[in-house]
Design a protein around this nucleic acid. Sequence first.
RNA 1: GGCUGGGUAGCUCAGCUGGUUAGAGCGCUGGUCUCAUAAGCCGGAGGUCGGGGGUUCGAGUCCCCCCCCCGCCA
Length: 648
Amino acid sequence: MKNYITTPIYYVNGEAHIGHAYTTFIADSLARYSRLIGNETYFLTGTDEHGQKIEESAQKQNKPTQIFADEISATFRNLWNEFDISYDQFIRTTDETHKTGVQAAFEKMYAKGDIYKDFYEGNYCVSCETFFPESQLMDGGCCPDCGRATTIVKEESYFFRLSKYEKPLLDYYEAHPEFILPKSRRNEVISFVRGGLNDLSVTRTSFSWGVHLPASLNEPKHVMYVWLDALMNYVTALGYGTDEANMDFWPANVQLVGKDILRFHAIYWPAFLMSLDLPLPKHIAAHGWWTRDGEKMSKSKGNVVDPREVSQHYGAENFRYFMMREVPFGQDGDFSQRALIDRMNSDLSNDLGNLLNRIIGMSEKYSNLLVDSADVEKFHAKELNDAHAVLATLEPYFYELQLHRYLEELWKVFSIGNKAIEEHAPWVKIKEGRTDEALATVALVANLLAKASVMLHAIMPKTTATIADALGFEITTESYNDLIIHKGLLKPFTIKKVPPLFPRVEEPLMQEAPKAMSEEAPKVELKQMDDKKVSTVAEEGVITIDQFFQTSIKIGTVLNAQEVPKSSKLLKLHVDLGEETPRQIIAGIREYYSAESLIGTQVCVVANLKPAKLMGMLSEGMVLAAKDSEGLSLIRPEKPRLSGSSVG
RNA sequence: GGCUGGGUAGCUCAGCUGGUUAGAGCGCUGGUCUCAUAAGCCGGAGGUCGGGGGUUCGAGUCCCCCCCCCGCCA
């Protein structure tokens, strides 16, 4: 079977970040898995280098555009090389073969009548390389995507008849429910297409850094729209429009994209392919974003995760394991050193690494490091069966891109191993003279580790190669067939003593990201939790003194305060109300008060409010504050009072 | 505002077409072994399944209303 896997080509307007790494890790894992199980596999990545933005960035740096593109492109390629990404080709849209291929495609679409010449007038955002209709612009004519100013551009342009493909696309989505993954994204695309598709302007005359139109059209002023240019890379890489050398890999099996560029890949791209009479890829798979410590990453906050830095401190494959294991495909993930460390310690050190050490230790003591599978089936048929049952369930997860589930299931094999050792206690058997039984248990675990390593190989290629080496075999398609498909066992071997593969990590190894106070502070209405209660109690806006005193307001001293992750509004406070334990109060005041500034100060707290959960945390009270258009002001005692003093 | 998806243990989530005491991993906690990376194994605590109505012999699972969160579109 032929299997073609692609990442998007990355735009060379900035350096690689965790998002690029994530996409590439997934794609690499898919490619490695595909090769392991014996598929003929082609894995493509590369860089997208055309467009006005690149031209301008190069000018700013006073560099020829090509040199600028060369440099940034190289940073991506170098990073992937450092990460041992197993790409078969690194395409660049400035490659001559690519340009030729795109021109061939353009010619074909034109000949078919899918591309025609007209005029385009509209508000153009240089940064996003996109025209926006008047109705979509923000105040002052700014771009709805990036917020930068747009300019009115009228230019001669060629158009692609996207409207013609509205119906065929909808039919295709309908007939191929697995085309767009995950499903939630599919709904978005369908509803977008149902809203109607306009023809797409696919050439520009306002700049020149792009693929020129085919000579046959004699249009030297025009260059191609970057997205037409860029999307075509997936087939020009296989030789479309040139030597066609690898076109038998088309259609692609999985084309990975970030959720931000799904629309281009799920609408424009299949429409282009239909126009070219090429089959559509099996899956367009959109993954989510990463945040850090619950916050969006941005350069201005200085909390961007540098994949190189993480890998230097924690190990590239550990990082990679973490990303694959932590997040269901399509969902956003959160990177934190704590989460990474927890994963490494509990999954890698405790379950996997320690298990290997256990059998190294035993075989050294009991059999001079010799491991023989001869008696495994005799004494451990059950464990072996259980493990094979687990291994047999794994494959679909990979095809569904559910790598986190894949790994979760795979880990059951290590659990079987750890339990088997416990249950059969080889150290006891040895004392009883039942050496063959003890050694069978060791051999069982060696085989479990071997099998699991094979299945983990796509995610952690180097680490699993080390394990395999220690267990006297090599991870290849042959050993996959032998150990997994045919449920074979390891030949007798001498186990190699290796130092712990995953030393436990106790403390964060990297400097923490600066805790950014939300500097943009969007004006959002604070949720007044008790608005409704007050209004129901207060008929006609008047209450009795008794009703008022139903509310217990007390003076509290803030002992501790910290930002609530994933929330721009909330602070978590620990407030002393003179009770045995301080109250935890989640207060929506973060936009106006920093956590530090509150510690040690006094506030007024509604003490008998029914506890409520905010962002999953219990809030045992409400801090009183006054609010107007200027913002929020906490109500505080004029002079310090004892914690717990009542107000009224 | 319109349309998706979702709100289940401290955290991250599983729970197919409604059916015994609602599950997993991590975390917490009690116990225990000693081959091992203070790892492993066994046990435990912890959930009015967002709220309210309804259908049903029976609802986390179906219907209606409401609240909240993410996303897409306006």
